[in-house]
């Protein structure tokens, strides 16, 4: 099926330089250069460090993606890029590079929304998206519930975090527990050795909050509760049961996430739930989501962990949908929009 459009996607909204190649609805290759090790020294992502790394990695990553996919740039039919939301300086590197590619190759440019790309990536994993799909995106930068009638032009926000992103809560709690950055994988690992014995608060799940914030999230109270609990143990001279705290915290987060996601599916009569973003790599979240979806008769779609975290394939996947559905390309003058609204799919 070589008459399907070959789309190169570029993602630089945070600390991963991603270049993916998708032909139609098939992933050819997904190349990633991450600066996460450089950020670990700082205990969090430093925007300037990320931007410098993007500039260095950009061309080598494009080169590697093409080589591994067995294509040359001359074969590329369109270039897609994350034009927002994300870190402004980091986005600009990707957007400028994508424009340079489109201009050099004489092909259309599609500036697309990072969050819509997280949804679209599942097309190359599990085939065409059911329409509508209910998507929950959870990462260090976002926590959103989206109703997606058409990923190329109609994405609706049902709710999002009102304070910390889910992944941010993992990072902060990891720091409290003396675990390294990024916190997600470490908490997941340590929690396997622990028991859920502490009843940490579930933000925005009570009566009043459920009226105003039914599909919103809040994780900052949970993070504070964990810090206080740990501080109290330490003050009492007792040792902190790190594995139990990690397991109990993780349980609270995944309970809220899955509960609200399934509630949203029911409310909107949607039979499919897709989970994406870095936190979707969490093993407890995947297991609990599966259990609860099965019980509710909802089909769960979660891409493999590598496609849940930020990558170029997701941008290429959405770009390919844009081409296949005949959506108009972006102008070469588009900005990098660090606060691009989730409802705006393309620039």
């Amino acid at each position: 099926m070589t008459d399907e459009p070959l789309v190169l996607g570029i993602e630089t909204s945070c600390d991963e330089t991603g270049v993916g190649l998708v032909r139609g609805e098939t992933l050819l290759f997904d190349a990633i250069a991450s600066s996460v090790d450089e950020h670990a020294r700082f205990g969090g992502v430093v925007p300037e460090v990320a931007s410098r790394a993007h500039l260095e990695a950009m061309v080598p990553t494009i080169e590697r993606a093409c080589a591994e996919a067995g294509v040359t740039l001359r074969d590329v039919d369109a270039v897609a890029v994350t034009s927002g939301p994300g870190l402004a300086g980091a986005l600009m590197v990707g957007v400028a590079s994508a424009k340079a590619l489109a201009l050099s190759l004489g092909v259309p440019l599609h500036g697309v929304n990072h969050l819509a790309s997280h949804v679209a990536v599942d097309i190359v994993e599990h085939g065409p998206l059911p329409e509508p799909t209910l998507a929950m995106l959870v990462s260090g930068g976002h926590s959103s519930l989206l109703l997606v009638p058409d990923v190329t032009h109609d994405v609706r926000s049902l709710g999002s975090t009102i304070d910390d992103a889910a992944g941010e809560a993992f990072d902060k709690v990891a720091r409290v527990l003396g675990l390294p950055f990024p916190g997600g994988p470490h908490i997941d690992r340590v929690a396997r050795e622990g028991q859920v014995v502490i009843d940490f608060p579930r933000g925005l799940t009570g009566g009043r909050d459920m009226e105003r914030h039914r599909f919103d999230f809040s994780f900052s109270g949970l993070k504070t509760a964990v810090s206080r609990w740990v501080a109290a143990k330490e003050a009492a001279g007792e040792s902190v049961p790190v594995a139990d705290v990690a397991a109990s915290f993780q349980e609270a987060v995944t309970d809220v996430l899955t509960r609200k996601a399934i509630d949203a599916c029911r409310e909107h009569g949607v039979g499919h739930l897709q989970i994406g973003g870095g936190v979707a790599a969490n093993s407890r979240l995947r297991a609990m989501a599966q259990e609860r979806c099965d019980a509710a008769g909802i089909e769960l779609r979660v891409p493999r962990p590598k496609l849940c975290t930020d990558n170029g394939a997701m941008v290429a996947a959405l770009g390919a949908q844009m081409v296949l559905k005949g959506r108009p390309p972006s102008d070469l003058g588009i900005p990098a929009d660090s606060s691009m609204p989730v409802t705006v799919v393309s620039a």
């Binding site: 061309v59 600009m92 590197v93 590619l101």
Partner: peptide, 19 residues
């Protein structure tokens, strides 16, 4: 200033590679 500087540089290296 870094942000502006990188726009020119990444444009040049990407065009160089593509062309």
């Amino acid at each position: 200033p870094f942000t502006g500087l990188r726009v020119g540089m990444v444009t040049a290296v990407t065009m160089g590679y593509a062309l």
